[in-house]
Design a protein around this nucleic acid. Structure first.
Lengths: 88, 88
DNA sequence: CCACCCGCTTACCTTCAGGTAAGTACCCTA
DNA sequence: TAGGGTACTTACCTGAAGGTAAGCGGGTGG
């Protein structure tokens, strides 16, 4: 569920309860393609990690946010980072 | 460092300070190919996660073991599992 | 003298994640 | 009427991850 080049990168941008638009994420991760960005976001949505909030406007506005469960990943990944930094 | 189909599977078999031979791992993970098994073990060795212990005998005997740092991954991955099981 | 054991190594092939580029729908503004 | 902003969607292509199968080295049991 967390595999692939992009999932963790996206997650890190959403941690802290941030509410980001599609274009915000595009700008925050300039090296990702639009295709990969939605693909990963959609997968994480069906996995219950993020929430999609659609505002019916023109031009369109869609925001993404971590679910509570998604947020609870934060300390775990933090522990992983700590582990990685402890490399002898 | 932990990506790919096999790294985590191998790790879980080595947790608990277990000392396993190449053939032990092969039997423990019947769906892995020999090629992938050494490839991943070697990578984890250069990453400092596992230790290779070669006994100069015939037939050859090589054992694998987690380094201390590798062992310290155990509680972290445990936390990940706990998170995954908490899926609503 | 042959076959076998174990831990690889090599060559070759298939599959799929991910990249690129272009297009769509919708309304708004100039 | 033309162009732009936003969030996608689609078609096509490439490289790398991983699978399969066969071979090697060298001592040992039959």
């Amino acid at each position: 569920m967390l595999e692939g080049r992009w999932k963790l990168v996206i997650l890190f941008h959403l941690f802290g309860g941030k509410l980001l638009r599609f274009s915000d994420l595009e700008r925050a991760i300039p090296t990702i393609s639009q295709k990969m960005l939605i693909q990963q976001l959609r997968q994480m949505e069906t996995d219950g990690i993020v929430t999609r909030i659609v505002h019916h406007q023109v031009p369109p506005k869609v925001e993404y946010q971590l679910t509570e469960w998604g947020q609870s990943l934060c300390p775990v990944l933090d522990a992983l980072l700590t582990w990685a930094e402890a490399k002898p």
